[in-house]
């Protein structure tokens, strides 16, 4: 019936000129729009995304090139001239901008140089956790059965360990606590939440009809996993990882504060907060500036995570 084919095609053409599908949009309906593209479009229209991104970008540059932001040496203490000197809030970017600490070191310089450790721990732990937790969660969710039982039980056991307490115990057994040691310790205890999120979203995605359709076509496991399941299960993991990143940074600071995280000579906000807290009555500035920086960084990551979650929220699709 060649005629029928023609009418059908015409029908669609007419329909499309006048009655575009309700899911499509007015202006951009003629262009292909992927879901990631839609999410990016959504993100671009959120001030929260821009504020947090600019903040984080600045922090990244500071972490990479601290020398660009201050000329002072963060380890150079001058107790005779600078012991707990008050901040000079008018002296922008000068060593005395935030004042000096109890060892006569420039707090501004220490805040700037401390960024690197925090960002490295945050990004490092998140990368490790996403890799390990994501992989285990994906395997557990996709293959199910005994593999799922084992992974889930192990996850439960790790989940039962109090995060900070566990990290303290682990780190306590190391005498030389470098950045990578802290990263490994935190990742060792922190992979469970990502694993659970990934497992849940993989289970949801693998039950979708498009996965059944791919199986019916004869698609192999790797095609189903990497082309159909993973792209549709990734969004919640990205959101959880972004928000958790802030948490890992504060965990590092907490551990360093307790003397179980990074140790001297590494410069860390946590160590400075610990030292600053000893003179809090008369010289709150020694505590305030590193603590403020820490809060700002954590806040920026959580805000970014929120913006990403809103943009990726599948309920809006």
């Amino acid at each position: 019936m060649p005629d029928a084919t023609k009418t059908e095609t015409e029908t669609e053409a007419v329909a499309d000129a006048t009655a575009a599908p309700s899911a499509a949009t007015g202006k951009t309906q003629d262009k292909p729009r992927s879901l990631w593209g839609d999410a990016w479009f959504d993100l671009r229209h959120r001030p929260m995304f821009w504020i947090s991104s600019i903040l984080l970008l600045t922090l990244l540059i500071v972490a990479a090139f601290p020398g660009l932001f201050t000329s002072a040496d963060p380890s150079d203490g001058d107790l005779t001239n600078h012991f707990l000197t008050k901040p000079e809030l008018g002296h922008f970017f000068q060593p005395d901008w935030f004042g000096y600490d109890g060892q006569g070191r420039s707090i501004y310089a220490r805040v700037i140089y401390g960024t690197r450790a925090s960002i490295m721990v945050g990004v490092g732990v998140t990368a490790a956790v996403t890799l390990v937790g994501g992989l285990l969660g994906m395997l557990a969710g996709y293959f199910g059965g005994w593999l799922d039982s084992i992974i889930s039980r192990v996850t439960d056991i790790f989940f039962g360990i109090p995060f900070l307490l566990g990290a303290m115990v682990v780190l306590n057994s190391f005498t030389d606590r470098k950045v990578y040691v802290v990263i490994l310790a935190l990742a060792f205890l922190g992979w469970t939440s990502i694993c659970r999120v990934m497992r849940a979203s993989v289970i949801t995605a693998k039950q979708a009809d498009y996965v059944t359709a791919a199986r019916a076509l004869g698609a192999g496991t790797s095609r189903i996993l990497f082309r159909h399941v993973l792209p549709n299960a990734l969004a919640p993991t990205i959101v959880v990882a972004t928000i958790a990143l802030g948490g890992y940074i504060s965990a590092e600071a907490t551990l360093s504060f307790l003397g179980l995280g990074l140790g001297e000579p590494t410069i860390s906000w946590g160590i400075d907060i610990a030292q600053g807290s000893q003179a809090i009555r008369d010289n709150p500035h020694a505590l305030l500036f590193p603590a403020g920086m820490l809060s700002l960084t954590v806040f920026a990551f959580i805000m970014l995570g929120d913006a990403v979650r809103d943009a990726l929220d599948p309920k809006l699709r």
């Binding site: 029908t11 669609e12 007419v14 329909a15 499309d16 000129a17 006048t18 009655a19 575009a20 599908p21 309700s22 499509a24 949009t25 007015g26």
Partner: peptide
């Protein structure tokens, strides 16, 4: 023939005309 209308862009005149 055709599809139900897009509520963002209801056809002018009678909505059913296309």
């Amino acid at each position: 023939k055709g599809l139900p209308p897009n509520l963002l862009k209801i056809p002018s005149g009678c909505a059913f005309n296309p």
